[in-house]
Amino acid sequence: MKEENKPVKKGFSRRNFLQVSGTGVAGLAVAPLLGAQAVEQKNPERPFEIPNAVDVQLNINNETIKLKIDPRASLLDTLRYKLNMTGTKKGCDAGHCGACTIHINGERKLSCLTLAMRHQNDKITTIEGLSKDGVLHPVQQAFVDNDAFQCGYCTSGQVMSAVACIKEGHNKSTEEIKEYMSGNICRCGAYPNIIKAVKAASK
């Protein structure tokens, strides 16, 4: 039987194994996601040279990150595959579901529908950048308290949308919140609780 602290196997390193087996330990600090601290290109051992690569500089969660990317790479894929920031999810890669919602200069946008290299002068905020010093953002806490998620896959996008929705002032009534949160699909159907969370965080 495999145990968590056995030596690593070829193909994945120890840090990955921690990410896999941590299941939200009650009361104990969860190992910080490495992607959240990344400041340099990941996977340095990979010899593949990206064809037509471009050097870009991206400001993500108040950190400036320099990297070489494929010019065709979406902002979403750059976050997930290059920077290992997997908090932002790919639901459809076509702008139909909202799971990839992030903030660009404080406005909520879909990271799957835009090329990373076009955002070198923008301030990008992802779900990883929302909490401060380990304290959940009020919207995040409201989501937890109101059970505004189930499987959690759409949740990053929902939270980013909810933060923006409140900032935009589109939270004046239940109907308005429903309409302005309709850009984030939740297949588990947590919708009514998401509304509750937005209202709670709006107070």
């Binding site: 840090r15 990410q19 939200g24 969860v30 997997t86 995040q140 896959y153 990053s156």
Partner: peptide
């Protein structure tokens, strides 16, 4: 009770199967 995985789910910290970082990964 609030879900035990709640704080991680709302922070993007949960690793789903195909989020796991694997070295030398091909796509």
């Amino acid at each position: 009770l609030n879900r035990v995985d709640g704080p991680d789910k709302v922070s993007g910290k949960i690793c789903y199967a195909n989020d796991v970082a694997i070295d030398n990964l091909a796509f």
